[in-house]
Amino acid sequence: MTKKKPTYSVEAEMRTSHATRAAEAAEGEPRRRTPPRRDDDPAVPARTPHATLAAEAAEWDSRRRTPSGFTDDDEAVPRAHEATAISIRIPNALLALLKKFAEREGIGYQVLIKRWLDDRLRLERERLRGLSPAGSPRARSRAPQFPLQDRDGDIHYQPA
């Protein structure tokens, strides 16, 4: 059984640029177009259907989809290719808490875990070197976190 070809394709319509159509209108006849891309051509990556994109956009708009479940891509993680994937069992309650914290910061929970591990390692390293005992004022010092607003006065910016 063969499928009936659609008589109208949104994708094919989108391929016809506004400029081409404007030229056609001016000349009074259709200009030559490049052959339409064959969707079954393995050399051409399949396009995401408009309906799928629209549904995804609606999920972002309604905040049903947020970046909280995302992890950094290779470009965002320095030397990610030097990393090793490990498997670790985490109690459900702890995982739920981690996800809550990660959601508040707008990052993935795995990124948060790595960030907190990094924090602790730096702290322990400094403690071992005798530079900054855990709990000292230096250990508690924090750079101002964004978002920030400037102020008219001696203190030039503060949390917004």
């Binding site: 964004f146 978002p147 607003q149």
Partner: peptide, 11 residues
């Protein structure tokens, strides 16, 4: 920019 309620993007 005159200070006061501007967004600070980097410091």
């Amino acid at each position: 920019l005159p200070p006061g309620s501007n967004q600070v993007r980097a410091y």
